[in-house]
C-alpha cells in the first residue's frame, strides 16, 4: 500500500492518540513524523482519530467564543467587593487623586457619596467583606484635603479580620488615613503619644465582635510594618483610650 515497503495498515498496530496529536503539532522528529503520516494515510481508524483531533481544536475554539453567564450570587458578591474598593479608594482620595478632585469637584463629590450610598445598600444585603457604614460624613476629618467629603463609618469586624482590613486600607494609601471624627482621632493620638513611635498611619472607628472600638495604626520599625492597636474609650467623646488588642501588619508593595 505504501511506497517505502512499510507494512500496510492491516499489519501495523494503530498509532497512539498521543502520537497523532504530536504529529499535528509538528512535535515528532522527522523520520517518525514521516512514518506516522504514511500510517495515517493508509489506516482509516487513525485517519479518523487524526481528523477528530483537528475537529476537537475547532470545536474548542467555537465553545471558547461563547461567554458563560456568571451565577447571580457570584455577580452580586463581585459588585459588592468592587463597590467597597471604590469607597476605600474614595476614603483615601485626598491622597490619591487630589488633583482630579480639585479640577472637577462638582463631578466627583456627588459620585463619592453615591458610592458610599451603594456600600450602605450592599451591606444591607449582608456581604461580609463590606463595611457596614453609618453616614457620619459631617464628623470627618480630612487630613489633606478640606474639599473631599470622606465616606466613613464604623467598620464591623471580627478580631481575625482586623489585620487584613488594616493591611487592605493602608496598602491602597500612600499617606495617613483618618476615618474617624476629630475627637476620636485626637483621643487615639493621645494613646499614640505614649508609644515609642507615635507616628499615626490610621484611625478607623470599628465595631470589633460587637464592641465599639477604635483601630489605631502606628508606623512600625520598618516602613512596611504597622503596629495595630484596638482601643476602647475613644468613641462617644472619650479622651483616654485603652488597648484591648494589638498586632503587627506587614504591608506589601511598599
Amino acid at each position: 500500500m505504501t511506497d517505502s515497503g512499510l507494512p500496510t495498515s492491516e499489519h501495523l498496530e494503530h498509532l497512539e492518540t498521543d502520537t497523532i496529536a504530536d504529529l499535528l503539532e509538528n512535535l515528532l522528529p522527522a523520520p517518525e513524523a514521516h512514518r506516522a503520516r504514511e500510517h495515517v494515510k493508509a489506516c482509516p481508524d487513525c485517519q479518523l482519530t487524526y481528523d477528530a483531533l483537528l475537529q476537537l481544536s475547532e470545536d474548542l475554539a467555537d465553545e471558547g467564543r461563547s461567554d458563560i453567564p456568571m451565577p447571580a450570587d457570584v455577580a452580586e458578591h463581585l459588585d459588592a467587593v468592587i463597590s467597597a474598593e471604590a469607597v476605600r479608594r474614595a476614603s483615601t482620595v485626598g491622597v490619591h487623586s487630589l488633583a482630579q478632585i480639585r479640577e472637577e469637584p462638582h463631578r466627583h463629590i456627588p459620585k463619592l457619596l453615591g458610592a458610599a450610598a451603594a456600600v450602605v445598600l450592599i451591606a444591607a444585603v449582608g456581604v461580609g467583606v463590606v463595611m457596614a457604614t453609618k453616614d457620619r460624613a459631617g464628623e470627618n476629618v480630612a487630613n489633606t484635603n478640606p474639599t473631599a467629603i470622606l465616606p466613613t463609618g464604623v467598620v464591623s469586624l471580627t478580631t481575625a479580620q482586623i489585620a487584613p482590613q488594616v493591611q487592605q486600607t493602608l496598602e491602597g494609601s500612600s499617606g495617613v488615613v483618618l476615618n474617624a471624627s476629630a475627637n476620636e482621632v485626637s483621643c487615639a493620638k493621645s494613646f499614640a503619644a505614649t508609644r515609642p513611635n507615635p507616628e499615626v498611619r490610621l484611625v478607623q472607628p470599628a465595631r470589633i465582635d460587637g464592641t465599639r472600638a477604635t483601630i489605631l495604626g502606628l508606623q512600625g520599625g520598618s516602613p512596611r510594618d504597622i503596629q495595630v492597636f484596638v482601643l476602647t474609650g475613644c468613641d462617644a467623646g472619650g479622651t483616654t483610650g485603652t488597648s484591648i488588642y494589638d498586632t503587627t501588619v506587614t504591608l506589601r508593595n511598599r
Binding site: G64, D67, I68, V74, D79, A86, R89, R107, H108, G114
Partner: peptide, 25 residues
C-alpha cells in the same frame, strides 16, 4: 483612573460573563 467611583464597576458588569468563562474553564 480620574477618580470616578462607578465606572470600574460598570466595566466589570460589561465583561464579567466573558471573564467568568475564562476563569471557570
Amino acid at each position: 483612573v480620574a477618580g470616578n467611583p462607578d465606572t470600574f464597576g460598570f466595566l466589570v458588569k460589561r465583561h464579567r460573563d466573558r471573564m467568568w468563562a475564562v476563569a471557570i474553564r
